[in-house]
Structures are given as structure tokens and as C-alpha cells.
């Protein structure tokens, strides 16, 4: 049960598919969401909203990769990518935005031009 030895190498956060979080997440590392998060998310590195995941939150991260459902405003300091299974509703602000064929998106895009 105590997995002390692999504490450091995988210093990332993974929210599993059955997990529901209602509140605020602040990560000075990468965050992968397979479950449900409602509230506010602030990530220093990459945020991945995987297929099947549901996020209802304002999001701020270095890079944001969405393949699930995301409702909320997104600020990606470097890059935002909506993959084919993504469904996003909200405003997107990022210098680089990729929306794949098949992805759904409703909201404003601000690429800071």
C-alpha cells in the first residue's frame, strides 16, 4: 500500500474516472483528469482532460489538451488543443489553438493578436 519508492519520479496528479471533485485544484505540476471536476483549476504545466472526463471549471494552465467535455473559460499560456472527441463550451484564450476534426467548440477565441 505504501508506495514510497516511486513518490518522486511520477510527481503528477491523476484524477481517476470514478472521482468527483467539487472545489479548487492548484497543481504546480501536470494534471490528468479522467473523472469529474467542478470548480476552478490552476495548473503550472499540462492539463489533460481525457475522453470520458467532465470538467466544469475555469481553467488556467501552460498547455491544455481536451478530449473530454469541458465547460468553462480556458486560459492556456502556451497552447490549447481540442482533440476529436472534445466538447468544449466557453471562451478560449491562448497564443496557439488547435481544434481537431470532430471536436465540438462553442465560445470565443482570443489568440492575443
Amino acid at each position: 500500500m505504501a508506495k514510497e519508492k516511486d513518490t518522486k519520479p511520477m510527481a503528477n496528479t491523476v484524477i481517476g474516472s470514478s472521482i468527483v471533485i467539487d472545489g479548487e485544484i492548484t497543481a504546480e505540476e501536470s494534471l490528468t483528469i479522467l473523472g469529474t471536476v467542478k470548480g476552478k483549476i490552476s495548473v503550472a504545466q499540462n492539463l489533460a482532460v481525457e475522453a470520458g472526463a467532465t470538467v466544469e471549471a475555469d481553467v488556467e494552465a501552460q498547455t491544455v489538451t481536451v478530449n473530454g467535455r469541458l465547460t468553462g473559460n480556458v486560459v492556456a499560456r502556451e497552447r490549447l488543443e481540442l482533440k476529436p472527441e472534445a466538447k468544449m463550451v466557453g471562451d478560449a484564450k491562448s497564443p496557439r489553438i488547435v481544434i481537431a476534426d470532430g471536436a465540438g467548440f462553442k465560445g470565443n477565441v482570443d489568440m492575443d493578436v
Partner: peptide
């Protein structure tokens, strides 16, 4: 992760 903080409810 060790550099992550959650305030709220986790189920």
C-alpha cells in the same frame, strides 16, 4: 501529486 493542492470535496 506532491505539488498539487485541492480545496473542496473529493468523492
Amino acid at each position: 501529486g506532491s505539488d498539487t493542492r485541492i480545496s473542496g470535496e473529493v468523492r
